[in-house]
Amino acid sequence: MSRPWDADPAASFVRRLGKSPKELGTTSDDDDCPDVWQLDNGDIAVIGRDLTDEYRSRLPEGVHISRDERLVIIPGRTLTSAKSDIPDA
């Protein structure tokens, strides 16, 4: 069975959405950089902490994480700063 949507591993990074981690004060060096990026195919890449295992047993009703998916946490200010770069639906 094919999925209605799947990530394209060949997509390239086009532009950061919002401010850089350094501008937001969410990093102290290059090893700790939560971020949000638009890819050339329109998809969004989120860089954050993988907390899939910590959240899997307490997901809300109807929420599922496939074996090839990860639950990623980013600082709220990272997404808030990206808001102006994300078009309305």
Rank of each mutant, 00 (worst) to 15 (best):
S28A: 11
G76M: 03
G48R: 07
W5R: 04
I74T: 02
I86L: 15
T52C: 14
P60C: 10
D88C: 00
G76K: 08
Y55A: 13
S84M: 07
S66T: 03
D53R: 15
D88R: 05
T80K: 12
G42K: 03
W5T: 03
T52H: 11
R16D: 06
I86G: 05
D85N: 13
R49A: 09
N41P: 06
W5E: 03
R58L: 05
R49L: 11
L51N: 08
G25W: 11
L39G: 01
F13W: 11
H64A: 10
I65F: 04
S84L: 03
D40E: 09
L24M: 12
G62Y: 11
V63L: 13
D32S: 13
I86Q: 07
V46T: 05
P4A: 13
D50M: 14
E69I: 06
D35H: 05
V46D: 05
G48N: 09
S84H: 08
R58M: 12
T27M: 13
G48T: 10
I86P: 02
R16C: 02
I86V: 15
L24R: 04
G42V: 01
V36F: 03
K83D: 03
R77L: 06
P60N: 11
T26A: 10
R15H: 10
L24E: 07
A45R: 07
E54V: 14
D6M: 10
N41Y: 10
V46I: 15
D53V: 12
E61F: 13
Y55H: 14
R77E: 08
L71V: 11
D35W: 00
D31K: 07
D88T: 03
S57P: 04
P60Q: 10
G62H: 14
F13N: 07
A11H: 06
Y55G: 01
I47C: 13
A11D: 09
Q38T: 08
S84Y: 00
D30R: 12
D85C: 06
G25A: 13
A11I: 06
W37C: 04
S2V: 10
V72P: 00
S2N: 12
W37T: 04
K19Y: 03
T80H: 08
R3C: 03
I73K: 01
E69W: 08
V36Y: 01
A10L: 13
D32P: 00
E61D: 14
P75R: 03
V14N: 00
S57R: 13
S12Y: 00
L39V: 05
P60A: 14
T78H: 00
A10D: 15
E69D: 15
T27H: 12
P9H: 02
T52N: 13
D43M: 04
E54Q: 15
S66K: 14
P34Q: 06
R15Y: 01
S81V: 07
G42N: 01
W5D: 01
